[in-house]
Design a protein around this nucleic acid. Structure first.
Lengths: 132, 132
DNA sequence: TATTGTTATACTCTATAACTATA
DNA sequence: TATAGTTATAGAGTATAACAATA
């Protein structure tokens, strides 16, 4: 007892960093950061998420979301449109190029995840723990 | 398929952040950050770890380690002594106050981890995945 | 009045480079 | 010549506050 590898927080931090680094490396070919990829994924769900919702889901400040969306919009991967029911909100719509890139990115993520030991049971456990 | 909660990286990041936040909150009473706590834990193992070793284990820059050790030393929780076999290296020794605080901190971490769903099996899985 | 998104700015955190001492 | 630790500084990343538009 007492070693840092007994600490769940330590283990989660290490695993998250390793997983993130592997994903970033895999997405580098596509000129996509993990954040951009995850934001694209959220925008692609079709749910009417405000940028503030995205901020909460990605644990980021709303002002950071603005910048990431700027980057993706500048590259023509998504577009901001006004939500019809509440014109303060922006509805993020993936362009065809964005959808294609997201497909490629997903395939890459899946291949990198297969290299992570026990990824399937780990995912199940985390989903339960986080309430998804 | 395709939702962010399918992404192992996303799940690990969320879980790590949640776990870290809970730990920080629990350690706040002791005026200890999670980093300081984890460094103390590593220093307490008795292994002759250089500050560079600590940097690698904590995924931090060596210059960050200097500052954290400064903070802990200023509070009288540990002391830098020169390693006898290689006088370039610093051997970090916990003071009695440091040992006592570490005991308290560990107890707090254990209690907060018990609130994390399936923490035991999660820890086992992560240990295996990370090769500990 | 409150909320969404945005911008500009200040702040914090981290990494880089240069130095001392030991090897 | 290389490595451990330190310091000062530059750079990146983040949050804060103020604003316009909409509710």
């Amino acid at each position: 007892m007492g070693a840092p590898q007994d600490s769940l927080t330590y283990l989660l931090l290490k695993a998250a960093k390793r997983s993130l680094a592997a994903l970033e490396a895999e997405l580098a070919d596509l000129d996509l950061t993990a954040r951009q990829y995850l934001l694209l994924t959220l925008a692609a769900t079709g749910k009417e998420l405000s940028q503030q919702d995205l901020a909460a889901k990605l644990d980021l400040d709303p002002t950071i979301i603005v910048k990431i969306v700027d980057q993706l919009e500048d590259r023509g991967l998504l577009e901001r449109t006004r939500a019809t029911d509440d014109r303060r909100r922006h509805q993020l719509i993936l362009t065809p190029a964005g959808k294609q890139l997201l497909r490629d990115a997903r395939a890459r993520e899946q291949s990198v995840e297969r290299t992570f030991p026990a990824s399937a049971s780990l995912r199940d456990l985390l989903r339960n723990a986080l309430g998804y």
